[in-house]
Design a protein around this nucleic acid. Sequence first.
DNA 1: GCGGGGGGCGCC
DNA 2: AAAGGGCGCCCCCCGC
Length: 558
Amino acid sequence: MYLAVSPVVDPTATGGPAHWRLRPVAPDGAAAGPERRVDAAGLAGAELERPRWLMDAAARVYPDLLAAGCPVRRSHDVTLTERILLARDGRSGEPSSAAAVHARARGLTVPTDPDPAARDGQPGLFESGDAGPEQVDPLEALATAIADQHRRIGSDNALRLLVAAESASGLAAAEMGFAGLPWDVREHDRLLTAALGPRPVGGARPVKLAALAGQISAAFGFEVNPDSVTDVRNAFRRSGFDIESTGRWVLRELAHPAAGLVLQYKELSRLYTANGWNWIADWVRDGRLHSEFVPGGVVSGRWATRGGGGLQIPRAIRAAARAEPGYRLVVADAAQLEPRVLAALSADPALQAVSTDADLYAGLAADGFGGDRAAAKLAMLGAMYGQTSGEAGRLLGTLRSRYPAAVACVEAAARQGEAGGVVRSVLGRTSPPPGGTWRAVVATGTDETASDADRRRAREYARSWGRFTRNFVVQASAADWAAVWLSTLRRELASLSGAELVFFQHDEVVVHAPQQHAAAVAEIAIEAAEQARDLVFPGATASTPVRPMIVGGYAEAK
DNA sequence: GCGGGGGGCGCC
DNA sequence: AAAGGGCGCCCCCCGC
């Protein structure tokens, strides 16, 4: 049974909906009780009955519920679910809102998805006074959508698990955006000032950057703007270094006094522009970093973020992520998740055995790489990413001889992609099919009359897509595991008052918890990982351990 | 003046 | 023989 929820927006009011409409709905879409119209207190009362809430999209609905004081335990997220189901049908990118699902199921004109970014102050899709022919009652749309999705999911247990975990991820993401990551602005400012000098006024460069820019020009003997790739490249060419790119890997090899200075400049400049004082002003409010997390924002099922670069908090400023007084951060990450997932996915006995090592790469090294951990790691990453050249390519043979099933698993995925096919994660997330351009290029290159250049280009395209699908099966299955881990962890966390998820990044969570609950949170993280392994890879002997650390500041965790 | 593409770099 | 996957965001640059 579900409880469908839909906000009632008054276009003239600000600060979110004052009322919500609720309706019990059976899995087949039939109304299972009368509709209610409730305020915040009514919402909270309804949640006490522990329903599975049925919502259009947590990203659109849940922030207002949280603001109204109604944290939700369980949900079915029509939009997140629809993305998964559409991808399985090779229809990624089609509208996925409840209204769209409803329209498709009823053969009506499908509305485009509401844009969450353009929603503030605007009446929602269904609330505009003049209902057009394609407007549908939102509760009606939800009822149609759950029935339709139930039918399409059927009895596929893996898919059911994926949909449940994805829906829970939607809740977790909204909660994390709402809570924010505790952020010590004074510590951040201290780090910035130490690296860059005091915060500049106006548009001036910080003093350290200005000094480096001056030294760079002096080293060349003429004026060079280190912010300009073109400028830097031309300067090195004038100085006798014929470089194509100004990337780190190129500059590192240059025997010119400016090279090291440019590298220093780039590092500091990135800190200043990407995570400097402006970033604080934009994304930190009341001591919390508020990123918008977007579950399923990546085709593989990984999360993305909108704004703040929430998944790219550089190590240089992690010391600013600090627990509040009386609290601790519990940082739990699944170390070396992807090779462990490959072990489980491929059921390779030898790799599963090695995966029980705390350091999988050390185990690999001992198992066939003469103790050379770096080589073992390179070979494993190369196999998962599709690297065929260099040392990784040479080491692939060793990997294949030791772990034939694991290598065969990723190579089968690569062949599937090279042929234009799709692949699936362990729980059934499906890769997108290649686009029209790809098909055209590959078709041209395989024609009898194709030129050598056309053939080469076609091979390149095919191989590139093969690398994508090769990596997809591992990355997406890791994302499946992580979603189940996160949702299990989140569910158990509800029993510890004051503990909240504040950060999630692919294979790592941060929980902000009262000091006295920190140890329990760590235990929950460990157990949730074991449950995730059993749910996502039933029967697998591979291990996907997490090692939580209880710290005051994020920087202490690594 | 604006937007898109590209180079580059941060994270996993 | 074969030139490693996924992102977001910054700046510059160029074309309109």
